[in-house]
């Protein structure tokens, strides 16, 4: 009985003393935190993608409250989110256009010449072995280094080709640096017409290894208004300063189907389009 009593009292005393000590220390060492940081953090997406250039959403919230960054620097926030945060902090909201990634290659396994590759399933490793096991030296290798880097699951690897789903892409740019072939560019989300080829080789050489290469036939240049498509060596590119309308793809009748709408490309509507 005695032992039990001693045990109960002493354990209770230890617990009580520790509790009081923690309480006192917590009061004495209290750190003042700005409640606005927490509130802004709640309004941010919380994906911690790092697209803003800060270590995560919490770090970005701290920077925004400390006026070291603007809410619009978050590539993921919708204009509404940016407006909410700006309103809460009482600062001007700035306008910016949403940007999405485009993988400038359409050479999936069905349309390209490829050799056997048994190494590490990663583009940056594969490119070390003779530039990748693909006939085209400039095309997508399809091991999905970019897809692995995407925190939003917006890049699909379909038949050995990375395809961006523009409706899922938030423009954080995490994928851009992962591509050893530099195929990924950020463009305005409002532009839907892109040339899915990035090879500077001559048209005939490209066609030997890829059915969907851009051969610079200029059909699209002629079909569109002046300056909408620009010729760059043996490659035609969309002029993102003066973008063409979506009906250009229909009008130009691209013989290799390298000219595509990003939305239809994501929905796999160009399968078998190349002749």
């Amino acid at each position: 009985m005695d032992t039990a009593l001693v045990a109960i009292v002493s354990t209770g005393a230890i617990g009580g003393v520790l509790g009081v000590v923690i309480g006192v220390v917590a009061k004495a060492f209290a750190v003042e935190t700005d409640e606005r940081i927490e509130r802004v953090g709640e309004l941010l997406p919380g994906a911690n993608c790092g697209g803003c250039g800060f270590a995560g959403c919490a770090d970005f919230a701290k920077a925004v409250v400390g006026a070291r960054a603007l809410p619009g620097q978050c590539p993921v926030c919708s204009p509404d989110d940016v407006r909410n945060i700006s309103q809460y902090l009482g600062i001007e909201a700035e306008q910016k256009e949403k940007r999405v990634a485009v993988v400038r290659c359409s050479g999936d396994c069905a349309n390209t010449v490829r050799t056997l590759y048994n190494g590490i399933r990663d583009c940056r490793s594969a490119v070390v072995v003779a530039g990748g096991a693909k006939g085209c030296d400039h095309g997508c290798l399809g091991f999905g280094s970019c897809a692995n880097a995407c925190p939003f699951g917006a890049i699909e690897i379909r038949d050995g080709l990375a395809v961006v789903h523009p409706e899922l892409c938030v423009g954080c740019e995490n994928c851009v640096a992962t591509c050893p072939k530099n195929l990924i560019v950020m463009v305005q989300a409002s532009v839907d017409v892109h040339v899915y080829c990035n090879s500077p080789e001559k048209g005939a050489a490209k066609r030997l290894v890829c059915k969907t290469a851009c051969i610079a036939c200029r059909k699209c240049v002629k079909a569109g208004e002046e300056g909408q498509m620009v010729v760059d060596g043996f490659l035609v590119r969309t002029n993102y300063e003066n973008p063409p309308t979506t009906d250009l793809v229909e009008k130009s009748q691209c013989p290799t189907s390298a000219l595509r709408l990003a939305s239809k490309h994501a929905a796999n509507e160009y399968q078998g389009a190349a002749k």
């Binding site: 032992t3 001693v6 045990a7 002493s10 354990t11 230890i14 617990g15 520790l18 509790g19 000590v21 923690i22 220390v25 917590a26 060492f29 209290a30 750190v31």
Partner: peptide
């Protein structure tokens, strides 16, 4: 003579210690 309370007391002490260290460290 409370050796039989070792586990219980140690857990409490460790938890409180970690808590204390965290509070002090933050400041």
């Amino acid at each position: 003579k409370l050796e039989f309370l070792q586990t219980l007391v140690f857990i409490v002490v460790i938890a409180a210690l970690v808590q204390l260290v965290e509070i002090i460290l933050q400041k």
